Simulated assay, not measured.
Amino acid sequence: MKKLSFLLLPLLLLALGGCASNPRTKADAEQVQQYTDPKDPFESVNRSMWDFNYDVLDAYILRPTAVVYADYMPQFARTGLLNMALNLEEPSNSVNNVLQGKMGDGFISLGRFLLNSTVGLLGTIDVATKIGLERKDEEFGEVLGKWGVATGPYLMIPALGPNDPRSGVGDYVDSAYGPLDSLNIYFSVLRFGIKALEARAALIQQEQQLDNSADPYGFVKNAYFQNLEFKVKDGQVEKTAEEEALDDDIDAYLEGL
């Protein structure tokens, strides 16, 4: 999800849905400690942040709020609010597509914004998709990846979840595109909250997989980097034997993002 991990709001925690915070056995813990991931040089700190995010913020704030939101908010209202939040990102999608040489997708994103903002009642109705103009999500972090910029170290940020320097810079740039740059704090928080709650509600179905993982922290980290690579390479990702073995579980997890 595009802008969910870039505002420090205690209420809104992305991509940490229902994950067990520690390895299940002492042997698992020892094995984790003996392994050094070059992408995760701050692992000890990151694991502490993971525990805080899961044991406190997700358990007591985000998950209960997402459950109430999903149970009591009418579906038509949820769909309309999410469509409106996503429509505000179409201009940035357009620019980021063009920066990657995807001129056709850039024009589609711009056309979607104009159509949904007018005929679609400020984006609440996704008219563009109904007539065959599918959404072409692209982030500036993906543009940087296309240009050869590495992700940098993995960062587990309090209240925000998984992140990396390239994505952080990319999302800062995305927020500078109009109309996102003109939103006041209240509309920005509302937009962020809608997307965060929808993302967390979708992850509820993936909780059991994470709970059954020997190392949920490592599982989500692998899923995070695979998702970044998948987006940068437009799905053309070469996987190692170990990654192939994890594909089924990780793909199921990513479907909830």
Results as ranks from 00 to 15, higher is better:
Thr118Tyr: 03
Ile108Met: 06
Thr240Asn: 03
Ala196Cys: 12
Lys146Ser: 14
Pro38Tyr: 01
Glu30Phe: 04
Ile108Pro: 05
Ser5Pro: 03
Gly101Trp: 13
Ser188Pro: 06
Leu16Asn: 08
Val119Cys: 04
Leu81Val: 10
Leu57Cys: 08
Ser94Phe: 02
Ser182Arg: 13
Tyr253Val: 04
Glu242Pro: 01
Lys26Glu: 15
Leu254Lys: 09
Phe42Glu: 06
Gly152Ala: 03
Asn93Tyr: 11
Leu82Pro: 02
Gly193Thr: 09
Phe107Pro: 00
Arg47Met: 03
Ala159Phe: 10
Gly123Cys: 05
Gln209Ala: 03
Asp248Pro: 01
Asp40Asn: 12
Leu183Met: 15
Tyr154Arg: 01
Asp105Phe: 03
Gln33Ala: 14
Ala20His: 10
Asn97Trp: 02
Val149Asn: 01
Gly193His: 06
Ser167Gln: 10
Ala202His: 07
Leu180Asn: 09
Glu198Gly: 00
Arg135Asn: 14
Gln226Trp: 15
Ala128Thr: 02
Asp164Tyr: 02
Gly235Ser: 07
Leu9Phe: 11
Lys195Asn: 12
Ser92Gln: 01
Asp28Gly: 05
Ala70Leu: 12
Gln75Thr: 15
Ala199Trp: 01
Pro162Arg: 00
Pro74Ala: 08
Pro158Lys: 04
Met1Lys: 09
Gly218Met: 03
Asp211Ile: 15
Gly170Ile: 06
Val127Glu: 02
Ala252Tyr: 12
Leu114Pro: 00
Leu144Met: 11
Gln236Trp: 10
Glu255Cys: 08
Lys39Glu: 07
Asn87Lys: 07
Asn184Glu: 14
Leu122Tyr: 03
Tyr224Arg: 00
Tyr253Pro: 00
Leu16Asp: 07
Asp137Leu: 11
Met49His: 05
Thr151Val: 05
Asp137Tyr: 09
Leu115Glu: 02
Thr124Leu: 13
Ala159Glu: 01
Leu82Arg: 05
Phe113Arg: 00
Leu115Gly: 00
Ile204Phe: 06
Ala245Lys: 10
Val68Thr: 15
Asp71Phe: 11
Cys19Ala: 15
Leu254Ala: 07
Gly168Asp: 05
Ile194Arg: 01
Glu242Arg: 08
Tyr172Val: 12
Leu110Glu: 08
Leu9Asn: 15
Gly152Gln: 01
Leu13Met: 08
Leu7Gly: 07
Asp55Thr: 09
Pro179Phe: 02
Leu81Gln: 01
Met1Val: 14
Ala176Asn: 11
Pro91Phe: 00
Pro10Val: 11
Asp171Ala: 14
Leu155Tyr: 01
Gly106Gln: 07
Leu11Phe: 13
Tyr172Glu: 07
Leu110Gly: 06
Asp71Gln: 15
